[in-house]
Design a protein around this nucleic acid. Structure first.
Lengths: 159, 159
DNA sequence: CCCAGTTTAGTTGCGCACAACTTAATTGCG
DNA sequence: CGCAATTAAGTTGTGCGCAACTAAACTGGG
């Protein structure tokens, strides 16, 4: 019961990872439907969220909040710029840095986006408290996975 | 406390979806490192799992197990074929259907893949029972999201 | 002061995921 | 029977995510 066999590991591993993958895609799917009328994808919505909160941010900061690198963010932000929701300007102080700012249109979109969370919440069919616990559990899981992933080679190739 | 405000919805929604997204990517990242030496991506590993279990399957069935459509599976399976792990053959009985079979090499890979689950389990840093509960929770969530997603337009466009 | 190393964005290439479409085979209803 | 609807797989196009790389600007130790 509490002493799982190797078989158990095999099965549960598959199930948990698969469930997580499936849940993530299911969420994406619900978001896709809801965000369609805002003209945003889910990752674009996440970027807009941090911009709505902070007004303007360098690309670097957005990447830290969303855990995304420039390879993902650069084209994403370019699409948001094409859509007229943000502007991107080289920082005068440090010309390596690009500051992303909301346009009036981008700021205005927030009003329409305020309805999104409740619709998502309703789609989950789960109580507020349970959702909060799930959140805590997932964050712990991510932290554990992150710390396990990094030290792949402790201090290898040292000669 | 138990009567969340609209603000609470806004925040929690973001947090849960974000956590789920982040956890899924963290898992992908750990899998990527572990599966690298097998020459598989995570979705390819999932496809191999169902083939290891069933020996051979039509593309359709693989899609049902993994919740993936042919737009994703066709190129993925083609890559597995190029790697020499599977063969794809039109079914004689129904020429629309393509049966995917393990090659000897593909079947042999299973031995090396048996170590994967334990390494993943260890990376999660979470107990067996908690993992099992998380799995159940996620499945319930996915089921709820699926049932909420489908009836987007009940019987719309009807005159 | 200067240049080696770091930092910030961006680019390229690959694979996954999905929507929308095409093609070919099969099914079944009139 | 015959043809319209369905089914299975594949194709095309878009966007995300990451690795590996480049380009340009900054930083700091000698």
């Amino acid at each position: 019961m509490t002493t799982p066999t190797e078989e158990d590991f095999l099965r549960l591993d598959h199930m948990v990872c698969f469930s997580l993958h499936a849940a993530s895609r299911a969420f994406d799917s619900v978001y896709r439907v809801i965000l369609k009328r805002l003209g945003l994808t889910y990752p674009q919505y996440l970027a807009m969220l941090v911009l709505w909160e902070h007004g303007e941010l360098p690309v670097k900061k957005i990447g830290e909040y969303l855990r995304l690198d420039s390879g993902t963010l650069s084209p994403l932000l370019k699409r948001l710029e094409t859509a007229g929701l943000v502007r991107r300007e080289r920082s005068a102080a440090d010309e390596r840095s690009v500051t992303v700012r909301l346009t009036d249109e981008g700021a205005a979109l927030r009003e329409r986006a305020l309805l999104v969370p409740r619709r998502i919440y309703e789609a989950t069919g789960i109580g507020f408290d349970e959702l909060r616990e799930l959140h805590a559990r997932l964050d712990r899981l991510t932290a554990a996975l992150d710390s396990a992933a990094l030290p792949e080679e402790p201090d290898a190739a040292h000669r």
